[in-house]
Simulated scan of single mutants.
Amino acid sequence: MLYLKLDLQYFAADEKTEKATPKKRQDTRKKGQVPKSQDVNTGFLLLLVFGALFLLGAPMKATMTGMYEHAFQEYIHWDLTENHVHTIFTEMTWEISKVVAPIMGVAIIAGVTSNLIQVGVMFTGEPLKMDLKKLDPIKGAKKIFSARAIVELVKSLLKITMVGSITFAIIWVNKDQMMMMSQKSIEGALSFFGTITIIMGLASALALLVLSVLDYTYQRYDHEKNIRMSKKDIKDEYKNIEGDPQIKAKIKEKQRQMSASRMMSEVPEADVVITNPTHFAIAIKYDESKSEAPIVVAKGVDFIAQKIKEIAKANDVITVENRPLARALYKNSELDHPIEEQYFQAVAEILAYVYQLEKKM
């Protein structure tokens, strides 16, 4: 029963039920693991591209028709020489660039913007590193039949259904006009089909954006689930950040010892030691060239207080008993700092008494 209880406690501690800590999130982000929906990129890209086509359609059409007119009116009469081919290629490339460049620019802006909206600014090379574990066929099979794969399949079917339904509906509504395009001019037919294409693109983009909201919500949920931590993970992370508590305790103890050793070395230079007399001891030094007020060079209670008094006695430093002043100075004064103004008079009287006593001695 004892072993069973210990095993249950171990599994409970190792179960990933806790939210990820900020450090875990930061480390995961450095590896390129962030919640991201490709549908947001696709929907945003389609929306901006078809929007650009809607706004720039007329200039693009004028450029393309002008290019064809120029080709069949002038280029067709040129002799086939090296210079003429170079000229035709250069001019055609320039005209095509004027048509394609704005759309490519909008596509790049859409891609960058959609990624910034989702993950912000992030540069990492972790996903590009070679990882032989990705070639494991067993893990690959598990991914194929995992819950995530099923969600992706359902999502793909839903996208195909939505886009197909929207496209079919728009074509069905405009089927009568399409049948009459044979009676229209080429320019009118191009204008009609261009408008229909842009409407289908914009409608599909909006549908994908609506779907992307649901997909992004799921991606965030799945990401949060994957980066969950166990209580043991949180404790281990805390130890790595803050250090082992036992080591920290040893370091603090060593620092206290060093501080006490340095403090004791200042006692022989003190002018007076004010005591409780048994529990508190405060060593005071007044050096007019360094400070306008007396400075506390050492203080302590119980064992440390006894050590201060022993060192003071061994170095002929006068000890004065003043219970309330000793308690107040210990509580309200810092090492190597001047005493507070409210204790000036009391300490000045003690120093005056010590200086008179030293003169007599």
Rank of each mutant, 00 (worst) to 15 (best):
Y10V: 11
K19F: 05
K19R: 09
T21W: 05
G32V: 08
Q33G: 06
V34H: 07
G43R: 00
L53Q: 01
L55P: 04
A62D: 14
M64L: 14
H70M: 06
A71R: 00
I76E: 03
H77P: 01
H77M: 07
H77W: 05
W78I: 01
E82Q: 11
H84W: 04
T87Q: 12
E91Q: 13
K98D: 02
A110P: 00
L116Q: 10
V119W: 00
G120K: 12
V121H: 09
D136N: 15
P137K: 07
K142G: 07
I144E: 06
A147W: 12
A149P: 12
V151T: 08
G164P: 06
G164L: 08
A169N: 11
I170N: 12
M180Q: 06
S182W: 00
G188C: 04
L190T: 10
F192I: 02
T195V: 06
T197F: 01
L202F: 00
A207Q: 02
L209P: 00
Q219R: 10
R220W: 10
H223Q: 05
E242P: 07
E242F: 06
I247T: 10
R256W: 01
M264Q: 01
S265N: 13
D271F: 09
F280C: 04
I284N: 05
Y286H: 14
D287W: 05
E288K: 12
S291K: 07
V296A: 03
K299W: 01
E310W: 04
I311D: 08
T319F: 02
V320I: 15
A328Q: 03
A328R: 07
S333K: 10
E340C: 07
E340D: 14
A348I: 11
L351V: 15
Y355G: 14
L357F: 15
